[in-house]
């Protein structure tokens, strides 16, 4: 723990330490991963510029989340005409309600997800990852396996739902404080 001004080398260390959790927060406010990456990049630059505002390392995550939230809302305003994104009003609501989740809780969720993924078969795991890898991943897989993209998405949807259910059960078993 540091009780002095945060310098640039501290910033890199802190940002790298918290980047995954900041991405989780940004994901709850943004419609897709490219948007998350863009907002994280913009936010990191703002953090760098405003580093003088931060006096203690322990406040970094909270401070960084405020900046990510602001940048996510700003990105939403830029996409005002896009009808495939949620409204700014709703994003404010989600941002407020996402706040209580701590890094420790997220780590427990990751561990639970790992347990659940291990319980899946290789093919099921590949399908779930295909939807998370990149745009077009499912379509490519559909072509490779002679299925329609729509049927594959439905299957992936069911697998993702069962994964979420499994994560929830794992957290309950571990005594985690899920939701």
């Amino acid at each position: 723990m540091s009780y002095g001004p945060i310098d640039q080398s501290d910033f890199m260390r802190l940002f790298v330490r918290h980047e995954r959790d900041l991405r989780v927060f940004a994901r709850s406010l943004l419609p897709n991963w490219p948007a998350v990456d863009d907002v994280l990049q913009e936010a990191s630059v703002v953090m760098w510029k405003k580093l003088h505002q931060l006096q203690q390392e322990e406040g970094f995550f909270t401070w960084a989340r405020v900046i990510v939230r602001y940048e996510a809302l700003r990105a939403r305003r830029k996409a005002a005409r896009d009808r495939l994104v949620l409204s700014e009003e709703l994003l404010e609501l989600l941002a407020n309600e996402a706040m209580p989740t701590t890094g420790d809780e997220l780590e427990k969720e990751r561990e639970a997800l790992n347990c659940c993924l291990k319980k899946m078969g290789d093919e099921q795991r590949q399908l779930v990852f295909a939807a998370s890898m990149r745009d077009g991943g499912v379509k490519e897989l559909a072509e490779a396996t002679n299925r329609t993209a729509n049927s594959l998405y439905k299957l992936i949807g069911r697998l993702r739902a069962s994964l979420r259910e499994c994560v929830y059960r794992e957290l309950q078993t571990q005594g985690g404080n899920h939701e």
Partner: peptide
Amino acid sequence: FLAASRVDSHLREQAEQLTLVKKEISR
């Protein structure tokens, strides 16, 4: 919704490890 988006994030992290999606701030 928030729980689903968190799981989506964790899945993405796992997928990145598997596919080596490089994360560079300056991209």
